[in-house]
Structures are given as structure tokens and as C-alpha cells.
């Protein structure tokens, strides 16, 4: 398969998976002991995969598509929160994935989740014009710890399979019509 076709097709699929995951997550009820809005953040997996496969910019593209989806379904504030959180966490995860081996997958997942929450919190603080929103910080930090560990573990588990699938996809023969 041509490299360009391969990229376009796989990028589209990844974006679709990311959007689907975030949609499915939004259907989950919040457990009583968790703060409102706490989500496992599984769609971060896709960003992680895109950045480990291709690097920063495609991963940012996925974050942007996710943000647009959030914007269409839940309004402008959701757009900005998703964008800011997604971009920040993508930056952090790409750096860690591609430039150091010191962190394990769990560490990368945790940092990605923290950055995601932090980005969202900043947008929330600016939108409501009040810094007491930052009172959420400790709870969100703990949630990011749990969610990040989860994404890190899942990512570690599915990475070989994804890698194989992507490779196989690249090597399928183009059909001449």
C-alpha cells in the first residue's frame, strides 16, 4: 500500500476509534465515590498510539478531532476543555514516548492523564473567572493517577497487537480496479 494512502486510512480509523471511545465513556455513570466528570480517559490510548507510531503532529490531529466532536455534541466550553487537555497531554506523552526510556508505560499514562486534567482545569478556571476551581486539583490528581495507570497498562497490553495490525495493514496489496 502506498504510504500516503496507508497514513490517511489509518489516521481516519484511529480518529474514529478515539471519538467512539470518548463517546462510550460519556455514557458511563459516575461512581458515587468519584468526583463528577471523572472518566478513565481511554481515548488517550489512541493519542498515545498515534504519537508512538508517527510522532507529535498526527497525534495532535487526533486530539483536535476529538475536541471538535466534543464541541459539536457538548458545546464550546467542552471544545476548549477537550482541546486544551488533549493538546497538553499529547505534547507530554510524545516527549516521554519518543525522547526518553526512563518512564514506563504506566508513568507515561499517568503524566498524560495529569496533563489532560490540568489543561481542562485551566480552561474551566478561565471560563468561570474564578480560581477556586483549582480546589478540584487534589481529587483530579488522584483520579489521573488511577486513570493513567489503567491506560498505561492497557496500552502496554495492546501495543504489540496494534503494531502488528498496523504493519499488516501497510503491507496489504493495493487492488487495481
Amino acid at each position: 500500500m502506498k504510504k500516503k494512502t496507508y497514513f490517511t486510512a489509518l489516521f481516519g480509523m484511529l480518529a474514529a476509534v478515539a471519538v467512539t471511545l470518548s463517546f462510550l465513556e460519556s455514557l458511563l455513570p459516575t461512581a458515587a465515590f468519584l468526583p463528577p466528570g471523572a472518566k478513565p480517559g481511554l481515548s488517550n490510548l489512541v493519542n498515545m498510539f498515534a504519537s508512538s507510531l508517527w510522532g507529535l503532529f498526527p497525534a495532535l490531529g487526533i486530539a483536535a478531532i476529538k475536541a471538535c466532536f466534543a464541541g459539536i455534541t457538548r458545546g464550546m466550553t467542552a471544545f476548549w476543555m477537550s482541546l486544551c487537555g488533549g493538546v497538553l497531554s499529547t505534547f507530554a506523552m510524545t516527549l516521554l514516548l519518543r525522547h526518553t526510556r526512563r518512564f514506563g508505560f504506566v508513568g507515561i499514562g499517568v503524566i498524560g492523564a495529569i496533563c489532560h486534567n490540568f489543561g481542562q482545569l485551566c480552561v474551566a478556571a478561565v471560563t468561570v473567572g474564578n480560581r477556586s476551581v483549582l480546589g478540584y486539583a487534589p481529587v483530579l490528581l488522584l483520579c489521573a493517577l488511577a486513570a493513567g495507570t489503567l491506560t498505561g497498562l492497557i496500552f502496554r497490553a495492546v501495543l504489540p497487537a496494534l503494531q502488528r495490525a498496523a504493519d499488516a495493514f501497510l503491507h496489504t496489496k493495493d487492488r487495481k480496479g
Partner: peptide, 12 residues
């Protein structure tokens, strides 16, 4: 890359 490194432990 490890799944859970020493750095991860310190981070957490």
C-alpha cells in the same frame, strides 16, 4: 521500555 519503571514509582 518497561511497563512500570523506577521513575514511574517516584512519579506516583
Amino acid at each position: 521500555r518497561k511497563c512500570f519503571s523506577k521513575t514511574d514509582f517516584f512519579l506516583i
